[in-house]
Amino acid sequence: MTPDAPGRTPLPAGVHPFPHPHLLGIEGLQPWEIGFLLDEAESWIEFNRLPAKSDGRLRGLTQINAFFENSTRTLLSFEIAGKRLGADVVNMGVSQSSVKKGETLLDTALTLNAMHPDVIVIRHDSSGAVQLIAEKVGCPVLNAGDGRHEHPTQALLDALTIRRRKGRIAGLTVAICGDILHSRVARSNFQLLGALGAKVRAVAPPTLIGEDTDRLGVDVYTDMDKGLDGADVVMMLRLQRERMSGAYFPSTREYFHFYGLTEQRLAAAKPDVLVMHPGPMNRGVEIDTRVADDISRSAITEQVEMGVAVRMACLDVLTRARRGVEGWS
């Protein structure tokens, strides 16, 4: 069922495969740099399926997961990724942090930095917060989601999933549906899928699409049926109900009626359409249970698996310079 993994992405002559100190977003990455990270991640997939999964390349390195916003799956995924590479992983959740005691974000960053971490993974509910910290610390920073801005490892794992299922990304039509306005996943995916040559659509009620979203290189649809027409991939986004019922749309009942992904609605897409969701899902709100659980089309659990591989690749690549890997210093 899975097509053969494609060969490594060709690199232009004389170019370093990943010259960036941090991974703050997909914006600014060259297509071959994205391809390089995907290729690196590819090599971890089989490894992760072995019973003994330990690789010692990050042994002795300290990885801090600083999560200023609640997370379960992303935090777990980064923790597992770090541990499989042999890093000493510590998690700092918002509930334990001094942020609650009134410390400013920059003071927290300086405090973390004084402990000499070798890589910091950060999630924060303010757009741009991760970059702000990255400017103040002396080690690589990985953005695990900042506000409505970017969530680069999610976009990478989505791309890896699509590439493995479809054998390519260029030329595919990908419909990203739901709460585009509040979604960092959508913004990272617009950039990544666009850079790799997919035709990307944003599908949402007009209240949940940001102004001038079409300027981000995507086609905007407010009619779900039109937005799904002929799609190769349908990527559903979580409706952040806690933030907005009544303000951006009237009710989950109405939302599901016009924007929920159902079998009937999915019939407009290609017969071999791939259904994705970054999780956690609201069944019956943005996605019908039968669609979510249809293993022939749904890649939702596969996305989680790819997530670990992608994060291992990112942790590996970003720490190569400090580990003295040849060609990376």
Partner: peptide, 14 residues
């Protein structure tokens, strides 16, 4: 809006 209260959108699509 719900109940014509001017705050929450009513189910205008339905």
């Amino acid at each position: 809006t719900r109940g014509l209260g001017g705050t929450e959108l009513a189910e205008i699509g339905l």
